[in-house]
């Protein structure tokens, strides 16, 4: 499907989505509360079949956080980028780890790096950082590392 067709289709699925310009793929912005249901539809819908979550990350915009999901269909070869704006002080979003299993690890990474809480995640623990890092989120823009080699 081309981006235009996707736009029509996605609006059909969820009327509240908005679209963002930029990038080669279609950027869809959804409300965090609607995300889980929308994700399930994205995967199961016959015309969409986004079965491959190839990138899951978060961007800290200083005022808010944005979850970014890159989805591709291995059968239909089209891709879409789904974004969800989160509150910076209490970021929470539903997990999609049972829809796309790869999200389990990626969400754990985002959890420790950005402090986003994934609701109903099966095993939300620190994956990369050592114990005792809870609460400090290194990838946020305001995080200062006391030992910074580069600044000498």
């Amino acid at each position: 499907m081309t981006n235009e067709e996707l736009k029509v289709k996605l609006t059909e699925l969820l009327p509240s989505v908005t679209f963002e310009e930029g990038g080669e793929w279609l950027n869809v912005v959804v409300e965090p509360a609607e995300w889980l249901a929308f994700a399930k539809q994205l995967k199961s819908d016959e015309a969409l079949q986004f079965d491959f979550l190839f990138c899951l990350t978060c961007v800290d915009w200083k005022t808010h956080l944005t979850m970014v999901y890159h989805l591709r269909s291995t059968k239909l070869q089209h891709a879409v980028v789904v974004k969800a704006k989160l509150d910076r002080t209490k970021p929470e979003i539903e997990t999609v780890s049972d829809t796309w299993r790869t999200a389990e690890f990626h969400e754990r990474e985002v959890y420790e790096m950005f402090g986003v809480h994934f609701l109903h995640h099966p095993d939300l623990r620190l994956l990369i950082l050592p114990a005792g890092w809870e609460g400090k989120n290194p990838m946020r823009k305001d995080f200062e590392d006391p030992v910074n080699m580069i600044k000498l």
Partner: peptide, 30 residues
């Protein structure tokens, strides 16, 4: 496998946010 580089640029000389989708990370999860 597939290595993805995702750059969010604000127009400056450095990337605003960069994400490497590394193949090993997903492969390990399986």
């Amino acid at each position: 496998g597939e290595l993805g580089v995702y750059i969010v640029s604000e127009g400056g000389t450095t990337p605003y946010r960069i994400k490497f989708r590394s193949p090993g990370f997903s492969n390990l999860s399986a």
